[in-house]
């Protein structure tokens, strides 16, 4: 395995609601190595974006509390003050946001927005900056970089805007880029182009990428490892091959089963009952997925679910996966998936 760039240990991010703090990211640990794409997957409300913003320290400090450690380059990002963090953010860690139209400044030209990043972190002269910006725009596949340099975000199409945003994120050759749903707002054809582009850039620069997404097919397309999050916790983690060929946790299996796939037959889609619990109301002791699989006996769950390593690098939380079956499969109360495989 390559050298680890970012090491997250027991990260807990809590938001203040009223007078209490509620954890949106609960005891999350994983590492990202050089030249690796780690995908963080889950439904809305599972804490994926809260996790991304905690790594970048973009949460409002008055209302959030982050505990644990995020090791980057020998320092704990959570212990840095604002000035120190500003030096890391944008230079060492880049971020790509979901909505390119809202994340880009509508009153600044694309060129200026990329240069803004270079201004802050490098001491290039005016001409060098312009040259570097054009170079970046060419790298991300913008057809007329000279013209785009002078254009405003609204003059570009969605795909082009997302490319411009990627060029901002990679302007200072960061070691790690966090991409928060980079293709959700885009059409499939453009999505494929952007994903191919991210891969291309990665092979050139060897950067690590944390890809935050709710779309498992995107994950299958580009990621090396998957972290599945549910209600703030990591419920399953492993290599892409492992998770797609042998998903264990009920949540991962349900998610995979609920996707209408272009290649599959027209059977009924699996529906996950209920909704993701809100952070103020969830049961913080037992298995958080329990309420959404009521047909599984209460005894199948651990009292305090822990991550278990079932295979090398493949972790699953709670023991309920051993007895899980889909409701439609009938009432085989002792259905053991490890045997049926």
């Amino acid at each position: 395995m390559n050298k680890a760039i970012l090491k997250i240990e027991n990260l807990t991010t809590s938001f203040r609601i009223g007078n209490k703090y509620h954890a949106a990211v609960d005891d999350v640990s994983f590492t990202v190595a050089e030249n690796e794409i780690v995908a963080v997957v889950g439904e809305s409300g599972c804490g994926k974006s809260a996790l991304a913003l905690s790594i970048m320290q973009l949460h409002n400090k008055l209302r959030t509390k982050s505990e644990g450690t995020i090791h980057y380059n020998g320092q704990n990002l959570l212990k840095l003050n604002d000035t120190q963090m500003n030096k890391v953010r944008g230079k060492e860690l880049g971020m790509i946001f979901q909505e390119p139209l809202t994340a880009l400044n509508p009153l600044m030209t694309i060129g200026k927005q990329i240069e803004e990043n270079l201004d802050y972190h490098t001491s290039l002269s005016k001409d060098e900056k312009k040259q570097r910006t054009i170079e970046l725009l060419t790298q991300v596949g913008i057809p007329y970089p000279e013209r785009t340099y002078k254009q405003y975000p609204h003059e570009l199409s969605g795909g082009m805007r997302q490319r411009a945003m990627i060029s901002i994120a990679i302007a200072c050759n960061p070691a790690l880029v966090i991409a928060d749903e980079p293709t959700t707002a885009l059409d499939v054809t453009i999505q494929a182009q952007i994903l191919d582009l991210l891969k291309d850039i990665q092979t050139r620069t060897k950067m690590g990428i944390i890809l935050i997404t709710h779309d498992l097919s995107v994950v299958a397309e580009v990621a090396d490892r998957i972290v599945v999050m549910y209600a703030g916790q990591v419920v399953e983690m492993g290599s892409v091959k492992e998770i797609f060929s042998n998903p264990l946790h009920p949540y991962t299996r349900s998610l995979l089963n609920s996707i209408p796939s272009a290649t599959h037959e027209k059977n009924r889609l699996h529906v996950i009952e209920g909704i993701v619990p809100s952070i103020a109301k969830m049961d913080r002791v037992g298995c958080r997925f329990q309420d959404r699989i009521p047909w599984i006996s209460k005894h199948a769950h651990e009292e305090r679910p822990q991550l278990h390593e079932v295979d090398k690098g493949h972790f699953v939380r709670c023991t309920c996966y051993k007895q899980f079956y889909f409701q439609a499969e009938g009432d085989e109360s002792t259905h053991d998936i490890t045997q049926s495989r």
Partner: peptide
């Protein structure tokens, strides 16, 4: 359009690209 749909099988992704 069909080639652009991401596939759920990670093994075939090289071919897709």
């Amino acid at each position: 359009l069909i080639a652009a749909i991401p596939d759920l099988e990670p093994e075939v992704r090289g071919e897709k690209v």
